[in-house]
Design a protein around this nucleic acid. Sequence first.
DNA 1: TGATCGGGTTGATCTCAATCAAGGACAACA
DNA 2: TGTTGTCCTTGATTGAGATCAACCCGATCA
Lengths: 239, 239
Amino acid sequence: MKISVLGEGTRCRLCHDCTARGFAICAALDKTELRELAQLSRHVRFESGATVFAQANIATSSFSVHAGTLRLYKLLPDSRRQIVGFALPGDFLGLPGLPRHEFSADAIGRVTLCQFSKESFATFAENRPQLLRRMIELAGRELARAQEHMVLLGRRSAEEKIASFLIGWRDRLSGIGRGGEIMPLPMKRLDIADHLGLTIETVSRTFSKLERDGVIQTFASGVVLLDTPRAEALSAGIS
Amino acid sequence: MKISVLGEGTRCRLCHDCTARGFAICAALDKTELRELAQLSRHVRFESGATVFAQANIATSSFSVHAGTLRLYKLLPDSRRQIVGFALPGDFLGLPGLPRHEFSADAIGRVTLCQFSKESFATFAENRPQLLRRMIELAGRELARAQEHMVLLGRRSAEEKIASFLIGWRDRLSGIGRGGEIMPLPMKRLDIADHLGLTIETVSRTFSKLERDGVIQTFASGVVLLDTPRAEALSAGIS
DNA sequence: TGATCGGGTTGATCTCAATCAAGGACAACA
DNA sequence: TGTTGTCCTTGATTGAGATCAACCCGATCA
């Protein structure tokens, strides 16, 4: 299946001033290696809604997110959907060792990625323990996040789910230097619902309730946490 | 916190005929390396119910499961519990890169493990890309399993959850050469409930329903799949 | 022999979130 | 300017699974 690259694929020559540099896998590389890796990669751009890759397809490429947000999701045959995560700048998609994509990924808003052929990336990483360790670290962090999300899905109320999601999103944004008073939520209500194991109506009602209770304030451009301690308590599962 | 080692910790000298060899990280090592790794490890044994390590504790050791089953779980402050997985022979616990244990682990029945100091294991792995790649592969597989479990927790009915769990358990057992007509379920109903985001009553009722419908048959020693296609259909989310 | 206990099952009832249904806000566009 | 479509919100009702409660069964042990 042809992936829908809308932008031009251009060889990346600008790794040294890439904004995602500090938190992506590239953080493990020195200048020379960086230049070498750039030779193997190309920058690709996807417009909002475009599918970067689809579940179960043979994974011939790996990606490092450069800018934008992606939703990563799995579908059941009857089209029930579970969003297993949102990818942000610095996230790596397409771990070596798994021949097929485990989930589908599509762009929420415009997204740019560094694309590598899995094969050449594997050759490049082959004898670079530093890079391999970095990948283990990223995979471990992702795994920890997945396990935390299992607790949310299996054992928490709608209100706790929303609060947890907001706190987690805030932390991820601040982790990539995008923290701020007003927190952008690029994904739609339906995406949030499919991420938290809720329906869109319950998500909407719960946002309304949190707003009524003075915990958050919603804007077209995002959400502000008014009562952070309360949100954090809900998120931690206290009360 | 002192971990409760009930058995004697003995240096492992028998890696070459270890039963978990084929699917554990050691599969990536040659004879010499195996002997070298054995020098760094010791065999530890835990009796049923014993805690191998606890969530949030500093992780000074890594483990490779040699025999038995463990439940891996996270607790909320009010003692709600989510079992994030069950560990079987060959599973690796305590990835490098994460300073603390992300979950607690305790023995279901008697368990034996190879224990490594994280530090010495890291040194050993340092310049063995083969081993590092193997760990990425295992981490990736674990991540894929976690994501599959998110679909289960977020988007499936009780009956589908139980069927999925049984099919998944069967596949894992057969993956380590423990497949068979009657499938042992070492964990209790409460463990299954806390794994699937259900209550013990719903688990019990659903087992009864599946038995009434001729899909499974339960014994003290385990479960037999009578109508495998039906169970697989439920597990896949068809109907 | 009976008491106790842990684990499991089953029934009655309740509740939280799903479902069904309607309408509002806003942008794109003819 | 009205029309259409997307996204979101809110209300009414339903239902799957939680909760509450009772009981069963086999093991252990006095």
